[in-house]
Simulated scan of single mutants.
Amino acid sequence: MIRAVIFDMDGVLVDSEMLYLNLRYQFAKGKNPEVTLEELYPTVGRSSEGSWGIVAKAVDNGMTWQELLAEYKEKVVVTYPSMDFTEVFRKEAPDVLRKLQEKGLRLALASSNGLAIVEKIIRDNGIRDFFEVVVSGESFRKSKPDPEIYIHTAAALGIDTKDCLVAEDSTAGITAAHLAGMQVAAVIDDRFGFDRSLADFEVEKIMDIPDIPILSGKEVSSAKA
């Protein structure tokens, strides 16, 4: 029985993937004017190594992905606290979270983003109090698709992983939740070519999450709903 719903943040509660993609693009273009936005689309929803390996290949200036990422953090990530994320916040999110709580479900957030920016986004958008547990990927040695962040979040809730449903969008996130032994609801986003084959359910928008059969008491007859 599902007792908790764990949300990813970027791409699920906030439509921030294009925002981050454009920031990476502007940074990469500063290193090599011939870099195209299309080259960097595959960076979305990957681990740091996966994303910045693609950036390093596109930039092709002799810098390693680690060096590029370190400079990006120094020059770009430090500006995140001054950015306004309310414009990319999914306005339906509070209603979704409220409906899930009304079903008696416990809520948590597990994001690959840094804790400071996660807290800023959920506080600025008025949803911090919905979550019993907020976990950042910066606390772990490996990032999604490694399942550690989801296993840790379930443990922090005191709930078995099999009793958790995760709302995710990216290939890495879906894989991480699946490997953690959780049910997965994939929010469909066809802009970035995410592989949703490991998801148990697919939803067009987050408003559909409270109506997923496994949360509504209906029998589940197929892997996708």
Rank of each mutant, 00 (worst) to 15 (best):
I54E: 08
A56N: 10
P210F: 11
R123I: 10
W65Q: 10
R90I: 15
L69V: 00
N22L: 12
V12L: 10
E168Y: 03
S170M: 04
F201V: 08
P33I: 11
A58S: 13
A225T: 13
R191Q: 11
D160H: 10
Y150T: 00
I212P: 02
P147L: 12
A70P: 01
F192K: 10
D60K: 14
L179K: 15
P147Y: 10
E34S: 14
A70E: 14
A4P: 02
R106C: 05
I159Q: 08
R196W: 10
A116Q: 13
A154C: 05
R3A: 13
S47M: 09
D200M: 01
K99L: 15
E49M: 12
E74H: 13
L179C: 03
V76S: 07
I2D: 04
G181M: 09
D208C: 01
K91R: 15
V35Q: 08
A108N: 03
S139F: 11
A177M: 01
G11P: 09
A176S: 13
L21T: 13
V14E: 04
L97R: 03
V96M: 09
W52D: 03
A223W: 13
K99D: 14
M18L: 15
K31I: 07
D15E: 10
T86K: 13
G137D: 04
T171Q: 06
I214V: 15
A199Y: 01
D195N: 15
L68K: 04
M83N: 06
E102H: 01
K144W: 05
G45K: 02
E38C: 02
P42T: 05
L68F: 01
T161S: 12
L165A: 03
P145A: 06
V55G: 01
Q26V: 11
M182T: 00
S51R: 06
I214R: 11
L68S: 00
L97C: 07
P145T: 00
N125M: 08
V135Q: 06
I2K: 02
K99H: 11
A167W: 02
A185P: 00
D211F: 13
K224V: 15
D95G: 15
T171C: 07
S111W: 09
S170R: 03
A167Q: 00
V35E: 08
E17N: 10
A176D: 01
A186L: 08
